Measured scan of single mutants.
Amino acid sequence: TGIVNVSSSLNVRSSASTSSKVIGSLSGNTKVTIVGEEGAFYKIEYKGSHGYVAAEYI
């Protein structure tokens, strides 16, 4: 489990890349469940599926 540490919002992406499609966003202080790690990204549970967020902001 981690907490989103941004002042505005954090993009949730379809894969572990900044060039991948943005599938949603999370606001600051949102609690997320981390299920894996790929490079600089965490794989998280997101809306019944999975998404990827930049690990530096969690």
Rank of each mutant, 00 (worst) to 15 (best):
K31F: 12
E45K: 11
E45M: 12
Y46M: 02
S7E: 10
I34W: 04
V4C: 07
Y52P: 00
K31R: 14
I58R: 01
K21S: 11
S27C: 15
E38S: 08
E45D: 07
Y42L: 09
K47N: 13
V12C: 04
G39P: 02
Y42E: 00
Y46G: 00
S15V: 06
S15G: 12
V6E: 06
S27A: 14
A16L: 04
I34Q: 00
G51W: 03
Y46C: 03
V12Q: 00
K47R: 10
G28T: 12
T18P: 14
G48I: 03
E37D: 06
G2P: 04
A54V: 13
G36N: 06
G36L: 05
L26K: 00
G51Y: 04
V22G: 03
S7T: 12
E38D: 09
G48M: 06
Y52L: 01
S49A: 13
S25P: 03
G39E: 05
E37W: 14
G48W: 06
V32C: 04
L26F: 04
G51C: 03
E37G: 07
Y52R: 00
V12R: 03
S14H: 10
G39N: 08
L26W: 03
S8F: 14
T33Q: 09
N11G: 08
L10C: 15
G28H: 14
Y46F: 13
A16F: 04
E56Q: 13
S15I: 06
S9M: 12
I23C: 05
V12G: 01
G24E: 01
S8L: 10
S27L: 14
A16C: 06
Y42M: 06
V32G: 02
V22I: 14
Y57S: 08
Y57T: 04
I34P: 01
S15T: 10
G36K: 06
T18S: 13
E56G: 07
A55C: 11
S27Y: 10
I34M: 03
L26N: 00
G48Y: 05
N11P: 15
T30V: 09
S19T: 13
S14G: 08
I23Q: 02
G51S: 02
A40L: 11
S14P: 04
G48S: 07
I34R: 01
E37K: 15
S8K: 12
V35G: 01
G36V: 04
I58C: 03
E38P: 02
K31W: 14
G2N: 05
T18N: 13
V12T: 02
Y46W: 11
A55I: 14
N11S: 13
E45H: 08
V32K: 00
V53G: 02
N29V: 06
S8E: 11
S14D: 11
S20M: 03
K31M: 13
G39W: 04
I23P: 01
I23W: 03
H50L: 09
S17W: 05
A16M: 04
T33R: 11
N29F: 14
Y42H: 02
V6G: 10
N11C: 15
A55S: 13
K47L: 12
G51M: 03
K31E: 10
V6K: 12
K47F: 10
N5L: 11
I44P: 00
I3W: 15
E56L: 11
V32F: 04
S25N: 09
S15N: 09
K21C: 11
A40I: 10
S7D: 10
V35A: 05
T30Q: 11
E45S: 07
T18Y: 15
S49G: 15
S8V: 12
R13S: 06
I58H: 02
G39L: 05
S7H: 12
A40F: 08
T1C: 15
I58T: 02
V6C: 15
V12P: 01
S17I: 06
S25W: 14
T18K: 13
L10P: 07
Y52W: 12
F41W: 14
L26V: 09
K31T: 12
S19A: 11
K43C: 09
S19W: 09
E38F: 11
T30S: 12
A54D: 09
E37A: 13
A54F: 14
Y46T: 00
K31V: 14
S9L: 11
L26T: 02
G28S: 12
N29L: 11
A16T: 06
G2W: 10
Y57C: 15
G24D: 02
S49P: 01
R13L: 15
S9A: 11
S49E: 08
N5R: 12
V4E: 03
F41Y: 09
Y52T: 00
Y52E: 00
E56V: 12
I44Q: 00
V53D: 00
I58M: 04
A55H: 07
T1Q: 12
R13G: 04
S19N: 13
V53Y: 02
S19F: 10
R13D: 01
I34L: 05
K47Y: 09
V4L: 06
H50V: 14
G36Q: 06
Y42S: 02
G51K: 02
I58W: 04
E45V: 13
S7F: 09
N11M: 14
L10N: 02
K21V: 10
T1H: 13
S7K: 13
N11E: 15
G48H: 06
Y46H: 04
E38M: 08
G48F: 06
S15D: 09
V35K: 05
I23G: 01
G36R: 05
G48L: 06
A54N: 09
A40K: 11
S7G: 11
S8Y: 13
R13T: 10
I3P: 03
F41H: 03
V4S: 05
G51F: 04
E45I: 14
K21P: 14
K31A: 10
S15W: 08
E45P: 04
T18V: 12
G36T: 05
F41S: 03
N5D: 06
S25G: 06
Y46R: 00
T18W: 15
V4D: 03
T33L: 10
S8R: 13
Y46Q: 00
N5G: 06
L26A: 02
E37H: 14
I3H: 08
S14C: 13
S15H: 14
I34N: 01
L10Q: 04
E37V: 15
E56T: 08
S19M: 12
A40M: 11
N11T: 13
V53E: 00
K47P: 02
E37P: 05
Y42K: 04
A16V: 05
E37Y: 14
F41V: 02
G39F: 05
L10I: 15
V32Y: 04
V53F: 03
Y57A: 08
R13Y: 15
K43D: 01
V22F: 06
V32S: 00
G39Y: 05
V6D: 05
A54T: 07
K43G: 01
V32M: 03
T33D: 05
I58A: 01
Y57N: 07
K43S: 03
A40W: 07
S27W: 11
A54G: 07
I23K: 03
R13A: 04
K47G: 11
S8C: 15
N5T: 11
S19V: 09
S9T: 12
S17R: 07
S27G: 10
I34Y: 02
V12L: 03
Y52D: 00
N5C: 15
N29K: 10
I58V: 10
G24R: 02
F41P: 00
F41C: 04
V32P: 01
T1K: 09
V35N: 03
A55L: 08
L26E: 00
K21H: 10
E56C: 13
S17T: 09
I23S: 01
S19C: 13
S8M: 12
S9W: 13
V6R: 10
S25Y: 14
S27T: 12
H50R: 04
G24A: 04
E37F: 14
E56R: 14
G51T: 01
T1P: 08
V4P: 04
V35I: 14
H50F: 15
K31S: 09
G2Q: 05
N29W: 15
T33V: 13
V4F: 05
N5E: 06
L26R: 01
R13F: 15
Y46E: 01
A54S: 10
L26Q: 02
I23V: 07
S7P: 10
I34E: 00
V6M: 08
A55R: 15
E45G: 04
N11R: 13
G39D: 06
T18A: 13
Y57P: 02
H50I: 14
S27V: 12
A40S: 10
T30C: 12
